[in-house]
């Protein structure tokens, strides 16, 4: 497994997202209120713009979510699935807080939702 170190965990603002460039791919990384970390593709499939990291983080029926800042479609942080349109999803990436409190992302262990 090939992990890329992104930044210190403390550099992630609580309940917001940041974007990281990982081997040319744009990865949106989110930290929730409970300090859990999730990573999705930054491309908003509805608008075609790379903006998901700038959406509002929240919950829907307990599931952690982000709403696209362009047209507000809500995505599950846990699965990448769009909760407003079951036919759409974004890639979900593996992310962990490694030794020294650094956030690490792996593109390899990329899980396509719905497969």
């Amino acid at each position: 497994m090939n992990w890329t170190t992104i930044c210190a965990f403390e550099a992630l603002p609580p309940e917001r997202g940041v974007c990281a460039l990982v081997e040319g791919a744009q990865v949106a990384i989110f930290r929730t209120y409970e300090d859990e970390v999730y990573a999705l593709g930054n491309l908003d499939p509805f608008s075609g713009a790379y903006v998901l990291s700038r959406g509002i983080v929240g919950t829907r029926l307990g599931e952690p979510t982000v709403a696209s800042p362009l047209h507000k479609q809500v995505f599950s942080l846990a699965t990448g699935r769009c909760l407003d349109d079951a036919s759409v999803s974004v890639p979900r990436y593996a992310v962990r807080v490694g030794v020294g409190g650094h956030v690490e992302v792996s593109l390899e262990q990329r899980v396509e939702v719905g497969v």
Binding site: Y33, I56, T59, R60, G62
Partner: peptide, 9 residues
Amino acid sequence: GRGCDICKP
């Protein structure tokens, strides 16, 4: 819960 794009703004 922890809010959403409606109640937070």
